[in-house]
Amino acid sequence: MSTVDIVDTVDYETLDIRETGGIVTLTITRPSARNALSRRVLGELRDFLGDATKPMILTAAPGPAFVAGADIREMATMTPDEGEEFGRLGGAVMDLLERVPAPVVACVDGYALGGGCELAMAADFVYATRKARFGQPEVLLGLIPGFGGCVRLQRLVGPGRARELIYSGRQVDAVEADRIGLVNRIFDSREEMLAAAHVTLAGIAANSSSAVALCKTAINTARGQEIHKGLDGELAAFRTAFTTPDMREGTAAFLAKREPKFQRA
């Protein structure tokens, strides 16, 4: 299958966006700054993610870092009001990424620190190479995680581990990140990782896209809620599934002992 650039009307300065077989690869391309999240990068991510609907691989230009963090040169001179606005922008990007109604795999090769770690955690799951390193080192700069790290890290690894990592600023390698639940799979090379992510997303894309989107909604809604509220959200999504053509097709195909023909997003 051919690879085509799906951005035909927007010229992004720091993003490369391509689609192959219905799967989007979103690459942050700011290698001179180790792909750091500047206002420009975050603004372009917000613009693109606001309309994103397809399965996605999130990665960055090859080099020592996936995303080395937020742009420290920009932050160093920010006033409190500007810092709050910067945090609000970063938080909005992470929320949009988390809410893409299709699975997103963060493919991490190199350092994913600060905002880079927060970006990876906002994806549905994380693949990493053995070169990957994760951390929230903001305290070493007199800062705190401001793009959701204090919230999402504890959801993934538990409050005790999150406190230790955030308070100390300690980095973890891919093996430890896998052990504590921050990473799903580890690969020997970037190429192997990206190929595996594409295979995973292609397999998911063969399922009902409406059902996958409802699963994602139910899972995200339940996080941080009391169990009965999470179960109420799941029940609401379950009911919605009965309104979709995919549900009728899937059950009919099962009863007829044939492969389902789901609608494609």
Rank of each mutant, 00 (worst) to 15 (best):
M56A: 00
C150W: 05
E164T: 12
P62T: 08
L15Y: 03
R88W: 03
A92Q: 14
R190P: 10
Y127S: 06
G158P: 08
F86Q: 07
E192D: 15
R34M: 10
L37I: 05
P31I: 13
T59Q: 04
D124H: 10
E98I: 02
F262K: 07
Y127V: 04
Q136W: 06
L119A: 12
S2W: 06
R18D: 03
A76R: 13
L182V: 09
A128N: 03
M1L: 00
G230T: 09
R223Y: 11
T200Q: 14
V100H: 03
E164F: 09
S38Y: 11
Q225Y: 09
I144G: 09
C215Y: 12
V126S: 01
I204M: 13
D246Y: 11
L26V: 06
R99M: 13
F134H: 04
R239M: 06
A162T: 01
I23A: 00
A36R: 15
R223F: 09
V139W: 10
A197T: 01
T251V: 15
T9A: 10
A68V: 13
A36M: 13
Q171M: 14
R18L: 04
D16P: 02
T14M: 10
E191P: 01
D47L: 08
A36G: 00
M121L: 15
D11A: 12
L140W: 03
L201A: 07
A205G: 00
R18Q: 13
L89T: 06
L156G: 00
M56H: 00
I219F: 11
L15D: 01
Y127F: 14
N35G: 03
E138P: 01
A36E: 15
G169H: 05
G160I: 08
L45Q: 02
D47R: 11
G21K: 04
Q225R: 14
I186T: 00
G181M: 09
M1V: 02
T77Y: 04
A112R: 10
C150S: 12
L96I: 05
R163Q: 12
A132L: 05
G83E: 07
T59K: 06
A60S: 14
D47E: 11
R40V: 14
S209W: 09
G181E: 08
R248M: 12
E192T: 13
T221S: 07
L49P: 00
E74R: 12
A68W: 05
L113F: 15
A132F: 05
E249R: 11
G158D: 11
S32E: 15
D11Y: 04
I180T: 13
L119D: 08
M78C: 10
L119C: 09
F238W: 06
L194K: 04
A253H: 05
G22A: 00
E234R: 02
V41K: 04
A206S: 14
V93F: 03
R258L: 09
I28K: 11
G83I: 02
A68T: 10
L42H: 11
I6D: 02
E19K: 10
D51N: 15
A123F: 07
V172R: 12
G233T: 11
P260E: 03
F187I: 00
T3K: 15
A256P: 06
R239T: 04
P145A: 06
A120E: 02
I204R: 12
V100N: 01
T9I: 07
A222S: 15
